[in-house]
């Protein structure tokens, strides 16, 4: 390449255009994401770390945080088990109604959380379809933790199914068939052959499920009744604190919830890197 005038002019012009585009991209993200993040961090820690913790854990905050973590953990376990099962069935089995089942999987992402909560009220509420059944069983479901757990599970159903199905589609069928032919039972084959193959997809899906569950608001708001120290999650605590004009408590809980989710996001980056390395080594 010659270092002639026109080529150099082109390069200069390209560099100017590039700098402008990169600058506006960074500016956009900075304004839209970084500025609000900085604002809430400042709001939560303005009065010092001691006030941050006391407003986070006081007035039902500790209970709300623990309930949120418990619901997220339950959703992660239930969706981890059933998500793996559903993904396996959808990828490996051929049966009537498979297409219908497949289209049900993504439905929770297409529906507003408020509508999900409302739909659960219509089924489980006192005048709901299963109302008499619920009453006969003697357990309180709506406006208590079971309905909140069901709502949390509902909104986060697709994550594990999607991630595990993706890995299952790429996994080698030969290994499973070899183990099966050699006399291993279906269960042994799954534990010894399939599970190690889908391991990272499952972990990734469970992390996404947990992160989503920690932040669930609309569906839980509708089915919980939001009673402090009883059916109040972290996000509901934020909502009530804002209503009561206890801003610091709202900011502190928000930072705690966002911090937990961010820790999970970092863990996901780690898992992604592991998966990339693993699939790279396999090729």
């Amino acid at each position: 390449m010659s270092a002639g005038g026109p080529a150099r002019a082109h390069r200069l012009r390209d560099r100017a255009a590039r700098t402008f585009l990169v600058g506006s991209a960074c500016g956009w993200v900075g304004l839209l994401v970084l500025a609000p993040l900085a604002a809430i961090l400042y709001g939560a820690f303005r009065e010092g770390p001691a006030r941050f913790f006391s407003s986070l854990l006081g007035d039902g905050g500790r209970h709300a945080l623990l309930l949120t973590i418990a619901l997220a953990a339950l959703a992660a376990v239930v969706n981890g088990v059933f998500g793996t099962l559903i993904a396996w069935v959808l990828v490996r089995e051929r049966f009537r109604g498979r297409a219908l089942l497949n289209s049900l999987v993504d439905l929770p992402f297409a529906i507003s959380p408020v509508i999900i909560g409302f739909a659960l009220l219509l089924v489980l509420g006192p005048h709901g379809w299963l109302g008499p059944l619920v009453e006969a069983s003697g357990t309180k479901i709506v406006f208590a933790w079971p309905a909140m757990a069901i709502a949390t599970i509902f909104v986060s159903i697709p994550f594990v199914i999607r991630e595990v199905a993706l890995v299952l589609e790429q996994a080698d069928l030969d290994q499973e068939q070899a183990a099966y032919t050699l006399g291993a039972g279906a269960f042994t084959t799954f534990i010894k052959v399939t599970l190690p193959n889908i391991r990272w997809g499952l972990v990734y899906g469970v992390l996404l499920t947990t992160a989503r569950s920690l932040g669930e608001f609309g569906a839980v708001l509708v089915v919980s009744g939001g009673i402090a120290n009883a059916t109040e999650t972290g996000t509901l605590f934020v909502f009530r604190s804002l209503d009561d004009r206890r801003d610091l408590a709202a900011y502190s809980m928000s930072v705690a919830l966002a911090g937990l989710s961010l820790a999970l996001l970092l863990a996901m980056e780690f898992v992604k890197r592991r998966v990339r390395r693993n699939s790279g080594a396999a090729r």
């Binding site: 990169v22 500025a35 609000p36 604002a39 709001g43 996000t235 934020v238 928000s254 999970l264 996001l265």
Partner: peptide
């Protein structure tokens, strides 16, 4: 360029932050 990894991570941030917290951030800002 420098900071590309940071930009990459920041773009995924909205998926990790509870939507209610997003609203609260804007109220503060």
């Amino acid at each position: 360029c420098f900071g590309r990894g940071l930009l990459d991570a920041l773009i995924d941030l909205p998926f990790a932050i509870p939507t209610l917290v997003t609203g609260l951030m804007l109220v503060i800002l």
